[in-house]
């Protein structure tokens, strides 16, 4: 377990903790747009965690997955935003 992977591990844990915080916002978010924001942030976290795991396990394939995750995050958020505005809460 060389120093690099330990540090990266720590960074990964911090990211997961911040993911936890976002989840709390998802839980309590008073209004729906709050939850939508939490959803968007969570997708960003998934991208972050994916990239760091790719670095740690040196799996180039994960990067492709991360690309699509980013796209989906955006699509999901935009669709949510649109239908929040249109459908009423």
């Amino acid at each position: 377990m060389n120093l690099f992977s330990i540090v990266m591990g720590i960074l990964l844990s911090i990211l997961v903790i911040s993911l936890g915080l976002t989840m709390i916002r998802l839980l309590i978010g008073p209004s729906i747009p709050d939850r939508a924001m939490a959803f968007d942030t969570i997708m960003l976290h998934v991208v972050g965690i994916g990239s760091i795991t790719a670095a740690l396990t040196d799996a180039v394939m994960l990067i492709d997955a991360v690309i699509v995750v980013a796209v989906l995050g955006f699509l999901g958020t935009v669709a949510l935003a649109r239908y929040i505005e249109e459908g009423g809460n």
């Binding site: 394939m61 492709d64 699509v68 796209v71 989906l72 699509l75 935009v78 669709a79 649109r82």
Partner: peptide, 23 residues
């Protein structure tokens, strides 16, 4: 050889078109 394939490709393409639908 790498992650992907007909199923995933098809879904990504549909996402692109659905983005148009949303926009």
């Amino acid at each position: 050889n790498l992650p992907g394939g007909g199923f995933i490709g098809g879904l990504v393409a549909s996402c692109a078109i659905i983005l148009q639908l949303v926009a």
